[in-house]
Design a protein around this nucleic acid. Structure first.
Lengths: 185, 185
DNA sequence: GGAAGCATGTAAAGTGTTACATGATTTT
DNA sequence: AAAATCATGTAACACTTTACATGCTTCC
């Protein structure tokens, strides 16, 4: 079995305490979704493959009449996760943002529309910042007790970065508004 | 024809002066690749579709015995581009970074490996910053003459943001190194 | 009793990249 | 003369998401 980043996402989430596929998906939606989203259609087949490769083991864990599978990371799985964390070969980081693409071509717009576009970009940055701060707060508290610090650190890095971007855009908006004011006056 | 972001990338690049599919690809590699990369296998079919939809028109533009197609944006195409730039419906921004995912799970590593990982992340941020500043410099000069400012603005936003991230990570590295020093001493 | 959430999975569709294929021209 | 670049396109592959399908449980 060829392990890729999504495989390690499963292993890592199991290690942090999620036990079922459903729980892993919920956990990623609250934490990694900003830099590594996933879907249930990925989680279940991935867990099945990891089980066949003996990197995780599955146990029945029914909740009343509702079936549930509880997965745990095997010693082999743990080694694989650690080796991945230490290795320096990563898939190239990828970023795609339609809003930024619009900004790239924004010279085609009149200044008022340029300002509106910048405002949308800033709103989005601010909203992402808020989400990152809000969503991590309850998690961070629970993790701290167990000596887990990095989810909170990553969330803070993301939030601080988006705050920086929002401020940068706000400065540019002001400059534009001023130059427009000069044109009008 | 259903227009998506890659369609507007073609229209926008044609508008900025690229005429052939090959030239569009080269232009994106120098500018939009950080927030909207593309490949020749996308460019050529997209241009063909845009031509069939009459948003661009094609003309033979041979270079000696080497065939070349020169595309120009039609009035309809220009309207479509402007409408897209003004509209506020964007595909959700997506970001995927294996390095950040590792950082999220970094509690599983000993402190020295945590520091190494942070160092790799910072190196990458610094290198991206450098690339953005270097690659935009010659473009910005040429664009400025024609009243085109946003490619340079977007590049500066990207470079400044990566510089911010690098500094953030450097601070964290220092803190970690200090706390490790205390443990040892 | 209905909506939302828990829980698992598959199939189809969408989106993108790499590799393949070809050939002219320019640079070293 | 070989390598790099210009130029166009297709086919195969990889990866991911959305939609479909099913059924239990809890909350309102």
């Amino acid at each position: 079995m060829k392990l890729r980043a999504p495989s390690y996402l499963m292993l890592g989430m199991l290690r942090l305490g999620a036990t079922s596929g459903y729980a892993i998906k919920k956990a990623t939606d609250l934490s990694t979704r900003f830099f590594w989203p996933t879907s249930l259609a990925q989680v279940y087949p991935e867990l099945a493959a990891l089980e066949e490769a003996r990197l995780v083991s599955r146990a029945d864990d029914p909740q009343g009449a509702r079936a549930r599978s509880a997965y745990t990371v095997t010693a082999t799985g743990d080694d694989a996760l650690l080796a991945w964390l230490r290795s320096s070969r990563e898939a190239p980081s990828q970023f795609r943002d339609e809003c930024v693409l619009k900004l790239f071509f924004a010279d085609a717009l009149p200044v008022e529309d340029q300002i509106a576009l910048l405002g949308r970009l800033r709103d989005r940055a601010e909203s992402t910042e808020r989400q990152m701060r809000e969503e991590i707060a309850p998690l961070a508290e629970a993790f701290k007790q167990r000596g887990i610090h990095y989810p909170e650190i990553v969330a803070r890095l993301g939030a601080d970065t988006h705050a920086f971007v929002a401020a940068w855009l706000a400065r540019l908006e002001e400059e534009l508004a001023q130059s427009e004011g000069l044109d009008a006056g």
